[in-house]
Simulated scan of single mutants.
Amino acid sequence: MHALWPCRAVLTLSLLLCSITTAALAESLPPPEGEVLLRVTGDLDHPNVGAELHLDRAMLMALDQGVIETSTPWTEGVGRFEGPLLRALLEVAGVDSEHVRIRALNDYEAEVPVADFHQYGVILAMKRDGAPIAVRDLGPMFVLYPFDEHPELLNETIRHRSVWHVGSVHVP
C-alpha cells in the first residue's frame, strides 16, 4: 500500500500541473501569429480577438491532444488520427454550455452535445497517420469520434455531428 503512495502523488501532481497549464493558457492566449484555422464565437469567457477566439495551427497543437485509431465511414482502413481534444478547446475558450454548433467551411452546421466530448474523447482531427489532413481529405480539421472503440457510434446522428472542413465553433 505504501509503495503506491509515490505513484499517486506523482499522478496527482501531474494532473494538477496540466490543469494549471490549461487554465494559464486560457487566461493569456494571444492573438494568432499564423493563418487562422478556427474561430470560436458566441458565449465564451476567453476571447483573444475582439469577442472571438481565433486559433492558428500552432495554437491548436498546443492544446491537450488526443489520438484515435479507428476506421471511419469516410476513409479506407484504420487510421491514426491526432488533434486537440474538443473538451480542451472549450476549456481554453472558457465555454460553459450544453452544446455547440460546429460549422464547416461550406456552411454545413451540426449541433453537438458537449457531453460527447467528455464521454468519448472526441477530437478535432488535424493529422492522419502523422501527416496533416488536406482539405480534399476532410481537412484541415474534422470532428472525429472513436468509432472502432464504440461501435454504437456508427449511426446517422453521430455521422451528422462528425463535421468535415471545420472552420468555426459557435457557443449559443
Rank of each mutant, 00 (worst) to 15 (best):
L37N: 05
S14I: 05
I20G: 03
D56A: 02
P113L: 12
P113R: 13
E91Y: 07
D45E: 15
L124I: 06
V92H: 07
A104P: 04
L138Q: 15
L13E: 13
S28C: 04
A58V: 02
L17P: 08
P32Q: 05
S19W: 08
V49R: 14
A51P: 10
L86E: 15
T75H: 11
G50V: 02
L55S: 02
T41F: 05
I123M: 06
L89P: 01
G130V: 06
E52K: 06
G83T: 10
G50M: 07
F81Y: 14
R128I: 14
L105E: 13
R128F: 10
R101F: 12
D107H: 12
R80Q: 14
L90M: 11
L90I: 03
H54I: 06
L90P: 01
A23M: 06
D56K: 06
P30T: 15
V114H: 09
A93S: 07
P30L: 14
Y108P: 06
L85H: 13
L86D: 11
V143A: 00
P47C: 05
A110Y: 14
L25S: 07
L17N: 03
D64S: 13
S28G: 05
I133L: 12
L37A: 00
F117R: 10
L15C: 12
M126Y: 03
I102N: 02
E27C: 01
V95T: 10
E76C: 02
L53W: 10
A23W: 13
D64H: 03
V95M: 03
G94L: 05
P113V: 08
L89Y: 12
T21H: 10
A51W: 07
D45L: 14
V78H: 11
D43P: 00
I133D: 01
T75W: 10
T72W: 09
G83S: 11
L138D: 13
F81G: 05
L60F: 01
L138M: 14
G42S: 04
A58K: 01
S71M: 04
P30V: 12
E109T: 13
T72R: 09
W74L: 05
H118G: 12
M61N: 07
A134V: 01
L89A: 07
V95N: 09
G34R: 04
G79V: 00
G77N: 08
G34C: 01
S71V: 03
L89K: 09
E35R: 12
A115P: 00
I123Y: 09
A24N: 07
A104Q: 10
V40P: 00
F117H: 05
P31Y: 02
N106V: 00
P140K: 11
L55F: 01
A125Q: 06
S28R: 14
P31K: 04
D96K: 14
T70W: 09
L53G: 00
D137L: 06
V49W: 11
E69Y: 03
D64P: 13
D43G: 02
D56R: 00
E27T: 06
K127W: 15
P84H: 02
L16W: 12
V100M: 04
G66Y: 11
D56W: 04
G50C: 00
A51I: 06
V100T: 04
D129N: 15
T72I: 04
G83I: 12
N48D: 08
L17G: 06
D107F: 10
L90W: 10
P30W: 08
F117M: 10
F81V: 02
G94S: 05
A26D: 03
T41W: 04
P73S: 12
P32C: 09
